[in-house]
Nucleic acid binder design. Structure first.
Lengths: 249, 249
DNA sequence: ACGGCAAAAAATGAATGCAATATTGCCGTC
DNA sequence: GACGGCAATATTGCATTCATTTTTTGCCGT
């Protein structure tokens, strides 16, 4: 994977990777090649973007018309989406969109924390000087946004750092799984209209300092720990924001 | 006409394997309820148990005959198996069994290490006195097998401890994902006829002492670390055993 | 004997058809 | 007006069918 050239352009470096985290590699094989792969991606996005409400039944016929395919590839896609956790298959009663209750959301955050934790550990084993530089770059760009209170740019950099750490971990299976699970959280953001909140901003910024520091020192065990707790704290903040209880139920 | 014979007895090579740690909850919804769910489970087991060789094409027609279903549910199952990583879908060229090369196996071990690491951390947050007792029990039973050099019993207890830790973590999504990924490694065991080896036995036993100790003290961070390295060491041992290189390639 | 080409065969991918099941709308009764 | 039963309708799950594409086979020429 080409690592981005060390062109010292903090501001522009990110804008290019801006758009959408997009697809894990997991379904690159399915993606554009076949009808069902196409339908899978489109239907997944359709659900992630919240066009179907939690618990709503998935109208096969309508979606067939919408996508211009017959029921066969659509139903194949539904089976896959069920295994990914986006829908639930009820015997003889079709598919329903699977929303996340507070408990599942909490679980999902912890699992993501586990992935990031692992990624941090592995990244410390593999990271090159150039890559440390790259992360630093993004970090300082993010710091700039932080100082200027530009939430949007801050958020993009934040995402980029976490994504790069996972990529640098150099474990394709991890990467694919990470992004796949990330999609399920992404949907919550759409649904709950969960724009990033300012609470905890300075705290998160401090945590990122620690992340960068641990990366520089290649302190895998430590970074692993920091990243898990970073996600935990994010979970706490999100739950606070949503008015959920933070204790197990 | 109406076939509908829920029994689905091919009477042929499919073992009536009862045990199997079985099932993540992930497909409890798919499992016995529908034809495609049934086929999914059976085909997955069929592949895990090595009835199809790495890279072999998956013969739709034959399997349809074997399972006594039409191509539709079988193909639906194939799509899911592809998303789980057991097969690869080649456009217009059907499905091929996806074997793991050394690199992917290494990645998979690390991901499992990540899951166990996370599980240990969470388990320390949740574990009750009774559950500690239970783990201790298994641990000492395992120690007995160790002293008597009974590899089989030792191995069963070993598995049980790791499984219990994951369950005690109390994160259903983690549990489901853990077992799902475990299946892919399970296949390697079948294929490579990877009986447990004696190497590293005493070392592994010592590590398990540390695991139990950390659990007792509810030292999550520590246990997290121990478990990751435990898996790493296991990976090293397995790779040694298989004659693979242990360094990244 | 060997390699290349064309036709046949088989496989795949997707659409359609059909029986079984769920859902809806309607009506009568309380 | 609310409720329960019943027919009409829609939906689901799977089998079957159809159009392509791939693979194999058979043939010919060199």
């Amino acid at each position: 994977m080409t690592n981005i050239q060390p062109s010292l352009k903090p501001a522009s470096g990110l804008s290019e990777r801006a758009p959408s985290p997009d697809a894990a590699d997991a379904e690159s094989s399915l993606a554009g090649q076949s009808l069902h792969g196409e339908v899978l991606c489109r239907l997944r996005d359709y659900i992630i973007e919240g066009h179907l409400k939690d618990g709503a039944r998935v109208p096969e016929r309508e979606l067939c018309d919408l996508f211009g395919v017959s029921r066969t590839p659509l139903r194949e896609a539904l089976k896959v989406l069920a295994s990914e956790g986006f829908v639930e298959l009820l015997p003889n009663r079709g598919a329903r969109v699977k929303g996340l209750d507070a408990n599942e959301l909490r679980e999902l955050f912890d699992v993501m924390g586990g992935f990031e934790s692992l990624a941090g550990r592995l990244a410390c084993e593999n990271i090159s000087a150039d890559e440390i530089n790259e992360i630093e770059q993004i970090h300082y760009e993010m710091y700039g946004y932080y100082l200027r209170r530009e939430l949007d740019g801050y958020f993009r950099c934040n995402q980029a750092i976490h994504r790069r750490i996972v990529e640098i971990a150099g474990n394709k299976i991890l990467t694919a799984t990470y992004f796949s699970f990330g999609n399920r959280i992404r949907r919550v953001r759409y649904i709950a209209n969960l724009d990033q909140h300012h609470d905890r901003w300075s705290e998160a910024m401090r945590e990122h300092e620690a992340i960068l520091d641990a990366l520089r020192r290649k302190a895998g065990r430590e970074l692993s720990d920091i990243l898990f707790n970073h996600l935990r704290n994010k979970r706490y903040a999100v739950f606070e924001h949503l008015g959920f209880s933070n204790s197990a139920e």
